[in-house]
Design a protein around this nucleic acid. Structure first.
Lengths: 348, 348
DNA sequence: ATCGTTTGCGAAAACGATTTCCGAGTTCTG
DNA sequence: CAGAACTCGGAAATCGTTTTCGCAAACGAT
């Protein structure tokens, strides 16, 4: 591969001048600049990013740590983050942590050794060893999608409280009163916040959310399917359910269909995220959108700002959200207990 | 950050010795080795990958070029590739090309400058400028999921011909005779190959696949939904359809449901890929699996072999596939024209 | 006319590893 | 016991940039 030295020789200038032409870091006479650019083109020169990074201590690289690459909602973050990072002329190096602290720490270690310019975590946990490692360096990082308890870490989240409110108001507006919630893991702050928004909107309308109508899931599809069994045992039967993400909501719908029930006639179901799968299932899922692109861009920009500020920021950016109404929610069937439901129960 | 020099000083040895301890590249006495390892631990030393890469001309990095990160089947490749690359102690840098030659070339340029050890393409096109750029270097690359016309490029694909056969045999075995196919873009070799396997199995059984029962899609969900309109106009009505990927198959199912039809009673539908979404929709999708993990691992290993061989290989690895039967296929309704279908037609 | 600043450029020192070369001591081998 | 072969380890070159420093000329302001 051609190096700067070759360019310099061909253009009859020094290496420094070539560097200055490329990085525009110091004034260079128009004639010499032309000669250098010519030489670059002629020998098809490409600056070596490793050498540049070694000297300038910037790998031109952003790291992205994801708990599960193939998770439908994370993949949206990945896509938009990659796009935005690319626009900043950086590369994106990605690591699947499998939610395992050791794998996560190993990945972060790798990133540190690579002189990355910043790291984005999707859903890191509060007592992550990786964060400790990073705090021992000057590498900026941002947590995406999950606010940490300790307020010292820069985060970008959606407006989880409002998300809960929007879901509740939508279901209430349709005339439901027996509404359940399938949450994510309740030790995760964002789940509690979504739940708070949800319950607050319910109580504003004079409704309660009894404990036995709160089901705790794990954000995965199967968790929705499993919950259906419990749902069908509620007495009196609930008429609507809000799941705290789409995968679980889709699981709920699948489980209901498996039991011969019809959505939304027998039960309204809503989710959170607005992943593309929402439009693939029937009925199409009503949901509260997660602003994936805006969040990803905010995270990358926050990183860049941290870098140029040269110090850790503690900002917490919250991106607004909105309701997307599709087919999985409708007014409750008017009879208190749908005859169809009764039949199904008897069949079991 | 601590450097090798610091370690050397603390352990009272030379830099070379530290390097040898770390890389196990030359015998080192047990006592000195211990001292060095101690020092490494004490000052929490991390070798700098940029410096190492600069000298050794290996970035310890694999590049992955994907046409669309958020595409459900690519994300499976991404996940398993990342896993496998990690096991080889490398990093994975990912780029979304949006199927755009310029974006692709730009990404490859970036990778070359970073001294990557190899590049995996998912579905690169035959006349890609990126491939020309790479051929001017010694960087090994592998094309995953799509065989190129020119046989000179190492590829890893699934057994597309057999996939078509399996689908046809399954539907024939259920008693279908009027079977249609929704293909991917027919200028893509793998689509033609899948179609060949499909038609061959049909003709072996004494059936033909008339041209008007071959629909050309673009591998996307919407493409399936749109095709339903055409499907319902076939006369006599087809009773089964095989889509060349799951997203289109799921689109077909969605479209059929939108028209008030019932799958598989009114029409059997099968796909290819076995993405997780198959188990999320109702009915769950019968499909021919794409061996994502085996393919990803084969690609990475092929890359590594190319690297250690020090020359371009032209291997074409084909991974076997199998049928996964779920709920979306069933014997055809016995009446030639289902009364339900008739009703629906009249309703339109 | 003088002093300070900006422009323009080259030489050389980093950056932090790997790798080559070399030499001294030890162990085989015949 | 001589010579070959292997073990162990240091010095120094090297990878390809960026960056600091220095110097000369040109420019602007007092």
């Amino acid at each position: 591969m051609a190096s700067m030295k070759d360019v310099a020789k061909m253009a009859g200038v020094s290496i420094s001048t070539v560097s200055r032409v490329i990085n525009d870091t110091h004034p260079v006479d128009g004639r010499t600049r032309g000669a250098v650019e010519d030489a670059i083109r002629r020998i098809n020169y490409r600056p070596n990013l490793l050498a540049a990074g070694l000297r300038s201590k910037s790998g031109n690289l952003i790291g992205l740590a994801v708990p599960d690459i193939a998770h439908h909602s994370f993949e949206e973050f990945i896509k938009h983050t990659e796009q935005c990072v690319r626009e900043h002329k950086h590369g994106l190096i990605i690591g699947d942590t499998h939610s395992d602290p050791d794998a996560e720490a190993e990945f972060i270690d790798h990133l540190i050794r690579r002189n990355v310019d910043g790291i984005i975590f999707i859903r890191v946990s509060d007592q992550s060893r990786a964060l400790d490692m990073l705090n021992a360096t000057s590498i900026p990082y941002v947590v995406l999608d999950r606010a940490l308890e300790s307020g010292t870490v820069p985060t970008v989240t959606m407006d989880n409280f409002t998300a809960g409110q929007l879901a509740a108001e939508h279901l209430l507006g349709l005339g439901h009163s027996r509404i359940a919630c399938l949450t994510g893991p309740l030790d995760v702050a964002l789940c509690r916040e979504r739940l708070n928004g949800f319950t607050q909107a319910l109580s504003h309308a004079g409704h309660r959310l009894p404990d036995q109508w709160i089901f705790e899931g794990d954000f995965r599809f199967e968790s929705g399917v499993r919950t259906v069994e419990l749902l069908l045992d509620t007495e009196p039967r609930i008429t609507a359910l809000w799941a705290q993400n789409d995968l679980m909501a889709i699981g709920i719908i699948g489980g209901l269909i498996d039991h011969g029930l019809v959505v939304p006639r027998d039960m309204s179901v809503a989710g959170v995220d607005d992943i593309v799968t929402c439009r693939m299932v029937r009925p199409q899922l009503t949901t509260v959108s997660q602003p994936f692109e805006a969040m990803s861009r905010a995270a990358v920009q926050l990183l860049m700002r941290e870098r140029s500020a040269g110090k850790r920021l503690t900002e917490r950016i919250v991106i607004p959200t909105e309701l997307v109404v599709r087919q999985s929610t409708a007014p409750p069937a008017d009879s208190t207990v749908s005859p169809h439901l009764k039949t199904q129960k008897e069949l079991l």
